[in-house]
Design a protein around this nucleic acid. Structure first.
Length: 939
RNA sequence: GCGCGCUUAGCUCAGUGGUAGAGCAUUGUCUUGACGUGACAAGGGUCGGGGGUUCGAUUCCCUUAGCGCGCACCA
């Protein structure tokens, strides 16, 4: 029972059991007000010496895809322990927080929600509007995450918070991209990539998850051979028969030999290819290949310079090569193809239950279809001269590769990975690493900083945009609807046309439009007026922007005009009657455009004009033939074409009109820069001065960081890529230590997932048992690199411990030590000296354990000492002594107080809230906040 | 197929070349200057199996089984 009578010397809060819910917000406020998470403040207030050794960690940025889970909580707990411990040891300590835009993951969450709630796709909204939705979602996630990080008691320096997609990080991305491009390590090429037909984007090798699937395995007659496959629907174009050169069964066939075989859509000529990729022991030992849709087959094709033909398009639809099956989705085509082969007598047999691995996108679960596509890659094997290197074994100015850089950073000992078995895993990954595809066809992310000259297609890297010009077709008119030529005649916008115009305005309103220039025909005027209503820019009219003058054809329906004027309407430079030729229109519109650009090129401009006008203008600007322009899709109502006017003109042709690559970068490209892009690279990296305070000097003070702490599951995704990027950009390592923690699982060892309903929410645990308990439950028993099985019981257990700490403190304070630790300890009883020595021995053990990342052992040691030694034995034995009074009691009082002091400090990194709450009640304290008290190592 | 782990008390896990530890759980006792979110005490394991090195192995080596993970392959 709680004794409610007030004992002497007892601060009021101790009259009640420890209440985490009440004290945590209060303590959090104290910390945040103090600003001590910011090392500059610590120096300013004299807590840390200006020349102290630094200690830094950058927080692995949580994805803004929702809320934090227990894995994040573990990460925060571990890092906060390291940070608080080092801060208390007097180091200049920085823990830099941030969040990750997580490109595909975030976009996919928003797309799913959009489809579910509004039945719309991202294309229905358009790039700008869709991005606005994603940003709103990301912002909301960010705010939730920040709240959770704070609730955990994580002493991060919010003043330095970063986002992987903010301006500073964008500059870092562009800078890194350009220098890698200049070094020849980033290239654009047609290679086989992992294509997600649902999300319509490439996916990197590491983002693929193989899912076991059982399917029937079919054997078909292919000429004199029998071939096996799970996917007959991909085999239309198979015209190479691959067999192992040593396969005795087929030695009569020679490499390059041709033979005619009956196949799905009739006879084809097949060629024998001898290649060691064929596995003699698998199936018949003979296979046909589909190079456009299989990595291995593609490699074979490359080796032997074979034809590569696309069979399936980007949406998983069969192409014309499939004959009667063209236009079918592959999933539907399989049974049909099978049936045809059966009817042709080519099906030999079917084996059921063939187990194979199907590649899926780990970010959305859709089956991956390999495709050959023009994409951007990072070449990991290409040699380049590294200007500056601090990595042992790689000399400045020497030739190296990214792979070598990654390997050396670890095998030289510059980076130590704990637990060390992961070093082997890391090398294994490097050995199998292929070029990294970095371009994604999604919208949320860093745009690829490459512009293509409209005129000559030359690439410009990381250019500066002077202004953006948007060329817009007017909204739908009544005559558009009726398919009537308007030309210089006119008709009002339809209701739909007005909606379209308003949608354009919405899309453009964040682009700081300085001027709207419109054709002076009514439909454009009306469109421009609607746009101006939202974006508030001046409108000028220019009659040179008018539509093609269709002369006598005006007012006629398309069919009627075609009958009367036939091919003249479509011709480039021929006319009949008073119809303006396309050539004339092109000359007129382009002349007008260049004139406008000369006057208004410095501001962002919207041009509202007409379908044919836009088409011919683009033909002119893109410097393409009329024939090429004609096959491009027609310009639809309210369609927007955006062009960038660059500050420096094209190196090749001098033009200044460019189009930026529409793709975005793999999210790991920007996360790879995280350890230094957050510390001021590149803008203040050069001028940063070691020893000077302030964020502008962070790069010199805190890079390389001390520890990168994260789950072992993202060793490849992220850790390896940071090593790559830092090695290349800086010639150094991003961190000296990698500490990998295990994954948090449920009590049965299963992964926590929504569908299993076994998710334990950190906030709920904090609410019920306190942040200290939640933290400890993730630390004790969690040995490095091993998964933690978490149950609510465990968390509850540590709540009891928090209360124990509270009560020990209450007892010691009640004993009335007066708040002073006796210095020197010389006049203490012998036994008391021994007790104090014992506590110091514990400090040593705990410090060593933390230094070697054995937080589990450290926590266990303190737990055991505090509860079973200090409380159960030392305090119990002291009771009689204190009662007896005299010198011995006096000496013991000081001893108890001293040990309590030590325990609070030792416990603080692990349980910051209770310990700080107790500290606040101490009658005299060495520092206002325990957070910045001195670690007792030299007490 | 290649590689990496794990197997110790009912559960979750530490640990060490000298015949084993913690937390939780279980059982019993206890209102003693804080704490029943407590204290004291008890029960419970021949450290997966086999072999080797050693005076001695749970700890080192080999082998075997089960479980888990990573990578590659999968026509």
């Amino acid at each position: 029972m709680w004794r409610m009578e007030k004992a002497p010397n007892i601060p009021e809060p101790f009259l009640k059991p420890y209440n985490s819910k009440e004290s945590e917000p209060r303590i959090l406020e104290l910390w945040e007000k103090s600003g001590f998470a910011n090392p500059d403040v610590c120096i300013e207030k004299g807590v840390t010496a200006a020349d102290a050794e630094s200690y830094s960690i950058v927080l692995p940025p949580p994805n803004v895809t929702g809320t934090l889970h227990m894995g994040h909580a573990a990460m925060l707990a571990i890092q906060d322990i390291l940070i608080r411990y080092n801060r208390m040891r007097g180091k200049k300590t920085l823990w830099l927080p941030g969040t990750d835009h997580a490109a595909i993951a975030t976009q996919s969450v928003v797309e799913k929600d959009l489809l579910k709630t509004e039945k719309k796709t991202r294309h229905d909204l358009g790039r700008d509007e869709f991005l606005k939705r994603v940003e709103a979602f990301a912002q909301a996630s960010h705010d939730t995450i920040v709240g959770q990080v704070r609730a955990m008691g994580a002493s991060v320096d919010w003043s330095r918070e970063a986002y992987t997609l903010d301006e500073a990080r964008n500059l870092a991305v562009r800078t890194a991209f350009k220098s890698m491009y200049d070094a020849g390590l980033i290239y654009r090429g047609n290679r086989i990539v992992n294509w997600d037909p649902k999300m319509q984007t490439t996916v990197s090798d590491d983002e693929i998850e193989y899912v076991e699937q059982k399917d029937p395995f079919y054997y078909f007659k292919y000429g004199p051979f029998t071939i096996g496959t799970v996917r007959p629907e991909t085999k239309f174009g198979d015209k190479y028969i691959v067999m192992h050169p040593d396969d005795a069964r087929y030695k009569e066939y020679k490499h390059g030999q041709k033979l005619e075989v009956e196949w799905i859509n009739g006879k084809i000529t097949a060629t024998i290819v001898k290649d060691e990729a064929a596995d003699m022991s698998f199936g018949s030992g003979v296979m046909t290949i589909t190079p456009a849709h299989s990595g291995i087959d593609f490699d074979i094709a490359q080796r032997h310079k074979l034809d590569v033909e696309q069979i399936i398009n980007e949406r998983g639809i069969l192409l014309p090569i499939a004959g009667e099956f063209a236009g079918q989705h592959i999933k539907k085509a399989r049974p049909m193809v099978l049936e045809k082969l059966r009817q042709k007598g080519l099906l030999v047999k079917v084996e059921g239950g063939y187990v194979h691995n199907v590649a899926t996108n780990s970010r959305g679960g859709e089956t991956i279809e390999p495709q050959i596509k023009l994409q951007w890659f990072v070449d990991v094997n290409k040699k380049f001269a590294i200007p500056h290197s601090e990595i042992p074994g790689i000399a400045s100015g020497s030739e190296t590769t990214l792979k070598e850089l990654m390997r050396r950073a670890v095998d030289s000992g510059a980076i130590k990975i704990a637990p060390d078995r992961f070093e082997k895993v890391y090398y294994n990954w490097i050995d199998n690493l292929r070029d990294w595809c970095i371009s994604r066809q999604i919208w949320y992310g860093h745009r690829i900083p490459v512009w293509y000259c409209l005129n000559c297609k030359h690439e410009a890297m990381d250019a500066e945009v002077k202004s953006k010009w948007f060329i817009v077709r007017h909204g739908e008119t009544e005559k558009n609807l009726k398919l009537i030529y308007q030309g210089h005649s006119d008709s009002p916008l339809t209701a739909q046309g007005r909606i379209q115009a308003a949608a354009v305005a919405e899309r453009l309103k964040n682009h700081d439009i300085g001027l709207i220039i419109s054709s002076d025909l009514g439909r454009c005027k009306e469109t421009a007026g609607i746009i101006a209503g939202t974006i508030d820019a001046e409108i000028v009219y220019d009659q040179e922007l008018r539509e093609r003058n269709f002369g006598d054809a005006e007012g006629m329906s398309f069919d009627e005009a075609k009958e009367k004027f036939g091919s003249y309407l479509d011709a480039y430079d021929e006319t009949k009657g008073n119809i303006e030729t396309s050539k004339r229109l092109e000359e007129r519109i382009s002349k007008a455009f260049h004139k406008l650009k000369a006057t208004h090129g410095h501001k962002n401009v919207v041009i509202v004009t007409h379908g044919s006008a836009i088409r011919l203008l683009l033909k002119h600007l893109q410097n393409i033939s009329y024939e090429e322009a004609r096959v491009k899709p027609k310009v639809s109502n309210s369609e927007v074409f955006s062009l960038d006017i660059l500050k420096s003109p094209c190196e090749k042709c001098g033009g200044d009109l460019f189009e930026q690559d529409s793709d975005t970068l793999d999210t790991w490209f920007s996360s790879g820069l995280w350890t230094f892009s957050t510390l001021g690279w590149p803008y203040s990296a050069q001028s940063a001065t070691k020893g000077k305070p302030g964020p502008e000097n962070d790069f010199a003070n805190y890079h390389p960081t001390d520890v990168l702490e994260t789950g072992y599951d993202i060793l490849f995704f992220w850790v390896a890529r940071m090593i790559l990027m830092t090695g290349f950009c800086l010639g150094t390592v991003p961190f000296r230590n990698v500490y990998l923690h295990g994954l948090v699982r449920d009590a049965q060892g299963r992964k926590m997932s929504k569908s299993l309903g076994n998710v334990i929410d950190p906030l709920t645990m904090i609410e019920k048992y306190g942040a200290d308990a939640a933290r400890l439950s993730l630390i004790v028993g969690a040995s490095p690199g091993n998964d933690v099985k978490l149950s609510e019981d465990r968390v509850r257990g540590y709540k009891h411990f928090a209360n124990k700490v509270w009560n020990i403190s209450r007892f010691v304070l009640e004993a009335g030590a007066g708040g002073e630790i006796r210095h020197p300890m010389s006049n203490l009883e012998k036994i008391d000296k021994k007790l104090i020595d014992e506590a110091h021995a514990i400090v040593k053990t705990v410090s060593e354990n933390i230094d070697s990342f054995r937080l589990d052992l450290a926590a266990d040691t303190i737990y055991h000492f505090v509860w079973h030694r200090f409380a159960d034995e030392i305090i119990e034995e002291s009771k009689a002594l204190l009662k007896a009074g005299g010198e011995a009691a006096e000496s013991r009082r000081h001893t108890l107080y001293s040990i309590l002091h030590t325990c609070l400090k030792l416990l603080h990194p692990f349980m910051p809230f209770v310990t700080e709450a107790v500290w606040q009640e101490l009658p005299k304290k060495e520092s206002e906040l325990l957070m910045v008290a001195k670690w007792p190592i030299d007490v």
